[in-house]
């Protein structure tokens, strides 16, 4: 479901998916390889977290703030939990939640945005107005209040941020799709009486894919950061669940004294988002190249 937006073959490609992917990969620059390696490493660590981590997620295994090395590679945190294990479980929680949220928001926002652009008229107006109302309320405050009303569970967090974030996706999808739907081939398809979903996926989507994919990479980072900002303000992912955002926050005071422990989860976030965006860049480059033959 979630990869649907990415893997729909463009009309010119008729070969098997795997063969195409391999062909593209062989031509990919080092940065893309690096990005893919990072993403796969994170996904692996996240999926197999219980086997990778030396200790449990919330298990208290030693004294507080033990130094690096020995039994605890990155030392222990403020309660004596193993920092490395927290990081590993943090990968699972943080990436999982951020990815689900972003994917959901693209599914909602992307589809509705394209439909609004294609159908136009009053539907477009109503949707645009609705989104305007929702977007006119600051996202962070909106999320904060909604989380207070519905409670701070992970499911609520994902749903609330996905819905709020989908308004941003909607706007972009609609804006870029509007440029496409005035093109002749879309109008031709409309005149042929093709159904909306067909036009959206076959005619519009391939043409708005590059900016949308670029946006996916960025929005993924933004969701990450929104969640950590919520943790910063006291909502968001709740302890004892390990989450990189709140781990940075919990240890932020150490920075003032030159201790780099809080840099670890922040670095983990940074490395992943950089990796994701390398892949996105490569994809962007690839699709713009493919379109030469359009």
């Amino acid at each position: 479901m979630t990869t649907g937006t990415k893997e729909i073959p463009t009309p010119t490609v008729r070969r098997g998916l795997l063969a195409t992917a391999w062909r593209e990969l062989k031509r990919a620059p080092i940065s893309a390889w690096f990005g893919l390696a990072v993403v796969f490493a994170y996904v692996f660590v996240g999926v197999f977290a219980p086997w990778v981590a030396p200790y449990g997620e919330a298990e208290i295994v030693g004294a507080q703030y033990q130094a690096w090395g020995g039994q605890h590679v990155f030392g222990t945190d403020q309660l004596g939990r193993d920092m490395l294990s927290r990081l590993v479980f943090g990968a699972r929680n943080t990436i999982g939640i951020a990815f689900l949220t972003t994917a959901l928001s693209f599914l909602i926002g992307g589809i509705i945005g394209m439909i609004a652009a294609i159908v136009g008229g009053w539907l477009d107006q109503v949707l645009a107005r609705l989104v305007d109302v929702l977007m006119a309320i600051p996202q962070l405050v909106f999320a904060l209040v909604l989380l207070s009303i519905f409670g701070t569970s992970v499911v609520n967090l994902i749903l609330i941020i996905a819905v709020l974030d989908s308004t941003r996706v909607f706007r972009l999808a609609r804006a870029v799709a509007m440029n496409v739907v005035v093109l002749d081939f879309v109008e031709a398809a409309k005149l042929q009486g093709e159904n909306i979903l067909w036009i959206a996926t076959r005619e519009v989507l391939p043409n708005i894919l590059p900016p949308m994919v670029a946006e996916f990479g960025l929005r993924f980072c933004f969701v990450f950061l929104t969640i950590s900002a919520l943790s910063f303000l006291g909502l968001g992912i709740q302890p004892p669940t390990a989450d990189w955002g709140s781990m940075v926050r919990e240890n932020a005071t150490l920075i003032s004294y030159g201790d780099i422990t809080p840099l670890l989860p922040a670095g983990a976030i940074a490395l992943l988002t950089v990796g994701v965006n390398f892949v996105v860049d490569w994809f962007l480059h690839k699709t713009s190249g493919l379109k030469d033959g359009h």
């Binding site: 950590s228 910063f232 932020a252 003032s256 809080p262 940074a270 950089v274 965006n277």
Partner: peptide
């Protein structure tokens, strides 16, 4: 690309603290 990517890849409060 790398510089700007890194700057948006870390939480705001972290940049602020640094």
């Amino acid at each position: 690309n790398l510089t700007t990517l890194t700057s948006i890849s870390v939480p705001e409060f972290f940049i602020a603290y640094i």
